[in-house]
Design a protein around this nucleic acid. Structure first.
Length: 266
DNA sequence: CTCCATGTTTAGAA
DNA sequence: CTTCTAAACATGGA
């Protein structure tokens, strides 16, 4: 699940449940997920006996501030999520980091495929800047977004998913935004006028807001969302036309051939 | 067995 | 320098 809306939901979940509780035990540390230079012992040392003070998100990266000012970084890859429950409950299969809290609960970071990352950083923004992660897409604003498009050469969908340009969108939600904006994924960015870019950005905001409101659960999404229909032999929720699967940026993109016409003739 | 999957990194080609 | 493609990573579902 984890794109911007999913991670925002995780952030709220963590904030609602796991803040200001002392960590009394750290378990299930999966070594292969740790950032360079971070050992299980070091991570455990940093987490034990501290509290998660607050959460911060930029793009798909989630951070939790610790008592000493350091931040725990969680990246969810393609299959990660959080699970908060009674400490007595067995953590879900594929739990890769489990924090036991002194209120009798535990917070598990679960990730089936080990494509995510767990880190420890002094300052999230400094760290992400150094990693060449761009600004969170929702902080750009319409004018910032339009400005960013200047001089860009590639395809619209690829640009939206480029984490170094703007952080947060992935394959699923870039498709959703393009569907809502009725834009073809392969439209060259340079072909778009400022008003068209602005309209696309308004869909960035609208789609993210609606997805977060739906708890990023496809079953709760608005009826006109592409997301639940996004598969081979799926049909457009608006006009019923069969969806087309195409390849862009090395990923499978879905579009409605009727609602998102080719940029050549529009 | 084969293909595909919400992400990122790396290598090599244009 | 920017952009694109393919492969790799690890794991499981169809």
């Amino acid at each position: 699940m984890p794109e911007l809306p999913d991670v925002e939901v995780f952030k709220r979940y963590l904030s609602r449940h796991a803040l200001n509780q002392r960590v009394v035990a750290v378990e299930c540390i999966e070594r292969s997920l740790l950032r360079d230079g971070l050992s299980p012992r070091k991570l455990q040392g940093a987490l034990i006996d501290t509290q998660l003070q607050r959460a911060y998100r930029r793009g798909k990266h989630l951070f939790a501030r610790l008592d000493d000012g350091q931040w725990l970084e969680l990246h969810f890859g393609m299959t990660g999520y959080l699970d908060y429950a009674d400490a007595a409950e067995t953590p879900p299969r594929h739990s890769r980091l489990v924090l036991e809290l002194d209120n009798g609960k535990r917070l598990a970071y679960v990730n089936q495929r080990k494509l995510g990352r767990i880190g420890l950083v002094d300052d999230p923004d400094t760290y992400l800047d150094a990693e060449a992660v761009g600004p969170d897409i929702l902080t750009l604003g319409e004018s910032g977004f339009v400005e960013l498009a200047g001089g860009r050469r590639g395809q619209l969908k690829c640009w939206l998913m480029d984490q170094s340009a703007m952080a947060g969108l992935g394959n699923i939600y870039s498709d959703e935004i393009l569907f809502q904006a009725r834009a073809h994924p392969k439209t060259p960015v340079k072909r778009l006028a400022a008003v068209q870019l602005a309209a696309i950005y308004r869909q960035v905001e609208a789609v993210c807001a609606k997805a977060v409101a739906a708890k990023a659960d496809p079953e709760r999404m608005p009826a006109d969302f592409l997301l639940p229909h996004r598969r081979k032999d799926g049909r457009c929720p608006r006009c019923g036309a069969p969806l087309e699967a195409l390849t862009a940026c090395g990923r499978t993109a879905y579009r409605c051939p009727e609602c998102q016409p080719d940029w050549e003739q529009s």
